[in-house]
Simulated assay, not measured.
Amino acid sequence: MAIVILRDLLGPVLLLAAAWIMPSVAKPTVPFGVRVPADRTHDPLITEQRRIYRWWIGTTGSALVLAGLVLSLLVQQVLVPVIIVAALLGVIAPGYLHARLTIRSVKQREGWFQGKRQVAVTDTARHTEPPRFPWLWALPAVLILAATVVYGVVRYPDMPATLLLHFTGAGQPDRTAAKSIGSAFGVVFLQAGLTVLLLAMAYALPRLKPDLDPTRPRRSANQNRRFASGMARTMLLVAACVNLSLAFASWQIWRGATSLAAFPIVLPTLVGAAGLLVFGLRYGQVGNNLPTDEEPANDATERDDDRFWKLGLLYVNCADHAILVPKRFGIGWTLNLGNPIAIGGFVVFLAACLVLPMLAR
């Protein structure tokens, strides 16, 4: 019973914790996705909106988690966490949008950027002196993938003639396939694809376009470099966790399991997500929580680029050649949907997600 409750509530609790701490992770000059001048980051309005948002998330979100606890006790279904997560998203979204719209409307009405010297700065060192790829941090993900492949090859002759490939919400099999390379190693193909993708992202992160503070450019660039390097290492650890989850899923298929044990599959991935959350809280988005050498502030301010951010979450700027840009509310980077290369890459990724599962049929 304790394992069932942990399985059903660990994911929703992590989501609730992430939503609650996100205002502390976000860059101070983009509260709830709204760009504000540096001298407005401690404005009473922004402080009040953070308080209201957290009160809303804390009370309603906790009530939903408790309701999920009761639901998991009454109905032992693997879809319970999915239902709770969907309900939590229905609570988080209006809380975020209310805070965002309130701050943005006051900012526009009072002209917070009026008379400000808006400046954009960049860090050329990310191209001329890029950090080394952390190969040792990549080893766990690669070794888990290699071990999964070796075990599968050795196990293949003794696998059942019919493999169970899909399970219902109750964990019971509802689709089978005759043993073949595709059906037996479909999850491994997915595992390999995700490993390559996450390793490529870890390599690219320190070279992506930074979001620097022109009031203290050197200090901001230092924080951004440290954040990108730390994020690359964390991404590699997440890759290892995801590989462990998929390895266990393959193992259940290969041994001919008659029912799905979902918790051991999702647990490593949830641990990786928790590690990413801890990293974000410690570092802050783009490294704004990291201590560094102080630098006297100048009279510049960041550009008011809210027009390129839809809801503060989606970035659309056809004039910007960057494929990925730092998120405004969250940890990491997001696609520039105004860049054709970014859109094409996203379409290819979606196509791969659809094609790879078909290999298992």
Rank of each mutant, 00 (worst) to 15 (best):
A38M: 10
A202M: 08
R328N: 00
W55F: 10
A99G: 00
V34E: 00
G95D: 02
P326A: 08
T258A: 13
G284W: 07
L14T: 07
A2L: 15
M1H: 10
F346W: 11
S229M: 14
L71H: 11
V238F: 14
L74V: 14
L194D: 03
F185I: 06
K27D: 15
N339H: 09
A19C: 05
G11L: 14
W251Q: 11
A87L: 15
P214R: 01
W112C: 01
I331T: 02
T148W: 04
Y96R: 00
Y283G: 01
G287E: 02
G272K: 09
W254E: 04
F32R: 02
F248V: 08
S183H: 07
E48D: 12
G330E: 03
L236T: 03
L190T: 06
A125M: 12
V188I: 14
R40C: 03
A170R: 13
T59K: 13
G345V: 05
A297P: 06
V278Y: 06
V242R: 06
R51P: 03
G95H: 00
Q49N: 06
T334L: 00
G345M: 10
P31C: 05
A352H: 08
R233N: 09
F263A: 14
L335F: 11
R54E: 01
S245L: 09
P210W: 03
P157C: 01
L165N: 07
D174S: 04
V149D: 07
T128C: 05
Y315G: 00
P134S: 15
V82K: 05
G115Q: 15
R207A: 03
I46Y: 00
A204Y: 08
V85M: 15
R126T: 11
P217T: 06
V286C: 11
L277P: 01
A125F: 12
A262C: 08
M1N: 11
R255E: 12
K179Q: 09
V149I: 15
I84A: 04
F349A: 11
